[in-house]
């Protein structure tokens, strides 16, 4: 009949292989789109590589590292996470870091509102098929309190392997490891981070917290002093606007706490005085100073911006938008 009739019977073609490769590529690209990096400031802090090739490779790895860091945060929310199409005003910092007291909360608006109100029946029905409620693994997740926070660790590990300079991985990972009672693993993880980022104040701060949890207050104090020195070297020379004041406040407040525990009230007050000019909300610290002077106990450490931000949140979840050292009580869902 036609010439095709003479053609040999079709054998297995390379089409499936090509298809698979294409699919993998599309999927990875589009997943990258789905979990869009939120943390732009992380990129800016990185030193520039001199070699172009290394830089290109490095940038690819960093993109993925960042992707997996964000993924860890998505896991912290049991899969509830904004995409680039959603309203992300309410999710600018990773809650894993924020809840760990390692990053400043910058969120405005309510996390429940990523998705907005139900727009139509497609949207409404669709919301039954993916996590559409805001929860945190450590308190109100469907399976909270069973140590489910461990689930974020693989992604932090992977991210740290891809980009050892992304210090958030180590500090956040160590925080949640400590919460799971894995103090040795936490310290080991932070030390790995310090190997790649010697003298990093954030990591030194987290290392101190590891020691504090192991009731080694003295070592914790010494490490935090190192962290303070390191911060001065790095951020102290910058303009006030560029400084990472959140970190330094955490360091100084913990130094004060350590001194307090070591029964050195003088030193405790000295650190608090140092913190006043560096704080975003000096009032809170002055209040703290008078409390210590009055002989009240020094326990909970609020990040310095807590007082200023609390008014923005009248929601249940406002409590854990700010750094806390202690697990939150399970919040009732509205």
């Amino acid at each position: 009949m036609s010439s095709s009739a003479k053609a040999p019977p079709p054998t297995s073609s390379p089409v499936p292989l090509l298809g698979i490769a294409g699919l993998l590529l599309t999927v990875s690209l589009l997943t990258a789109l789905r979990l869009h990096p939120v943390h732009y400031e992380i990129q800016a802090r990185r030193p520039d590589a001199d070699d172009l090739l290394a830089r290109l490779l490095g940038d690819g790895r960093r993109l993925f590292a960042n992707h997996f860091y964000v993924k860890a945060d998505a896991y912290f929310h049991s899969g509830f996470y904004p995409t680039i199409f959603d309203d992300r005003q309410s999710h600018q910092t990773a809650h894993i870091a924020e809840d760990a007291g390692l990053a400043e909360g910058k969120n405005t608006g309510d996390e429940e509102q990523f998705l907005g109100t139900v727009a139509n029946w497609v949207d409404g029905h669709g919301r039954n098929h993916f996590p559409s409620v805001h929860t945190h693994l450590d308190n109100d997740a469907p399976e909270a309190a069973g140590g489910a926070e461990r689930e974020i660790l693989p992604w932090l590990t992977l991210s740290s392997k891809l980009d050892p300079n992304l210090v958030e991985n180590y500090s956040v990972g160590a925080f949640w490891l400590r919460k799971l009672g894995k103090y040795a693993e936490a310290e080991h993880f932070v030390r790995k981070g310090l190997e790649a980022n010697p003298g990093n104040p954030e990591l030194l701060f987290e290392l101190g917290r590891c020691r504090l949890d192991l009731k080694d207050t003295l070592r914790a104090r010494n490490i935090w002093e190192m962290a303070w020195e390191a911060w001065k070297k790095r951020d102290g020379s910058k303009d006030a606007a560029e400084q990472n004041r959140f970190t330094v406040n955490q360091i100084l407040m913990h130094l004060a706490l350590a001194e307090f525990r070591l029964h050195k009230q003088e030193d405790c007050l000295r650190w608090l005085e140092v913190a006043v000019p560096l704080s975003v909300s000096p009032e809170a610290i002055r209040k703290r100073i008078s409390e210590v002077k009055a002989g009240q106990p020094f326990e909970a450490i609020d990040p310095p911006n807590a007082a200023g931000e609390a008014s923005d949140h009248d929601h249940d979840h406002s409590a854990h938008d700010h750094g806390h050292d202690h697990p939150h009580p399970p919040a009732a869902k509205p």
Partner: peptide
């Protein structure tokens, strides 16, 4: 809609 992976992964 038919992809409920996230619900399964996170034990919803």
């Amino acid at each position: 809609w038919f992809d409920v992976r996230d619900l399964i992964i996170h034990n919803w």
